[in-house]
């Protein structure tokens, strides 16, 4: 019987790499673990998962599961967990797992811990560390009950090695007729970008309120990101003002990033924004105000007008 079941996220073409980080928690918790893939026509996706050390890759493949509707996916997860007997139901924090896993927790009558960044094992009992209050504090929590649902912060757990002997792919039969039917997928609006995925990028360049409009944002933030081969992020203020799309938002209520290099252009450093960047290795701030809170968090800060500094920076990097 598997100890843990890890929900894998994909975009219908390929596995989302960040969703593999939860496997590392399954390894730390000990015992066997299974991976669960839900979708339609996911053969290629499932076969890409066989050497991650799981005992099996469970695949629920049905036209009724083509889109990630929470009511159906949660039902499938709960059934898969009951069948496998898993005690830990794991996923990596993302809008996908945040939407679906609490619902599965309801069906399993299990408590859930969001955004686990570390575990501590003492005398056979486990506690989980997680950020609260916009990441300004960590809480150490324990949960009761036979089962628990956990999501992890990708930045806090490595990607697992993919060198295990291939495991079997097991089909999980779904009775499409019995699935809930109250939600319908209508459409999706996603931009295709040549830039790296924000949550996996080595370099992230972000812009804040003073970037003014979409064109300026793209020219300066986008220009610097491209010079460094990085991804683009934004503050809530920049997204609210329409300079950048919602999926660029970094922070307490947006994405969490932990790149090697994070560059903040015209960002004050509100705790809600810092919540999403604190684990970056090097943080650079360019701000005209030396007293902006971001300058306390940054590894290096340069005081001045970003409209003058950023073009120079792009130019110097391109020349080098």
């Amino acid at each position: 019987m598997a100890e843990s079941l890890v929900l894998i996220e994909h975009d219908r073409q390929q596995v989302k790499r960040s969703s593999l980080h939860a496997i590392t928690l399954a390894q730390q918790l000990g015992g066997e673990y299974e991976l669960l893939v839900i979708g339609h026509v996911v053969n290629k996706i499932s076969s890409s998962l066989v050497s991650l050390g799981a005992t099996s890759v469970i695949v629920a493949d049905d036209p009724a599961l083509a889109e990630p509707l929470a009511d159906r996916y949660a039902t499938v997860i709960a059934e898969a967990v009951r069948k496998s007997g898993a005690k830990n139901i794991l996923g990596t924090s993302s809008t996908f797992s945040k939407d679906i896993l609490p619902r599965a927790a309801a069906l399993l009558d299990a408590p859930m811990v969001t955004d686990v960044v570390a575990i501590e094992q003492m005398d056979g009992s486990i506690s989980y560390r997680r950020p609260i209050n916009a990441g300004s504090m960590f809480a150490k929590v324990k949960v009761e009950g036979e089962r628990r649902v956990l999501t992890v912060r990708a930045a806090a757990f490595e990607t697992p090695a993919a060198n295990a002997a291939p495991c079997p792919i097991v089909r999980f039969d779904v009775d499409a007729e019995s699935l809930p039917n109250g939600m319908r997928f209508i459409s999706r609006e996603e931009r295709k970008s040549d830039r790296p995925d924000l949550t996996e990028a080595r370099v992230v360049v972000s812009g804040g309120r003073p970037l003014k409009d979409k064109e300026t944002f793209e020219r300066l933030v986008g220009g610097l990101a491209d010079a460094l081969g990085g991804a683009i992020g934004a503050t809530r203020a920049a997204v609210d003002a329409g300079m950048a799309p919602n999926d660029y938002q970094i922070g307490q209520t947006g994405k969490v990033v932990a790149p090697e290099l994070y560059i903040a252009l015209g960002i004050s450093g509100a705790i809600q924004h810092l919540a999403g960047i604190k684990d970056s290795r090097i943080i650079v701030a360019i701000n005209k105000d030396p007293d902006a809170p971001i300058c306390q968090t940054a590894t290096y800060f340069l005081v001045g007008d970003l409209y003058q500094i950023v073009p120079q920076l792009i130019e110097s990097i391109r020349r080098a």
Partner: peptide, 13 residues
């Protein structure tokens, strides 16, 4: 809905 990948439209009964 605002998702990690952009926007998604769903209908609910």
């Amino acid at each position: 809905r605002e998702t990690d990948a952009g926007l998604e439209v769903v209908e609910l009964d």
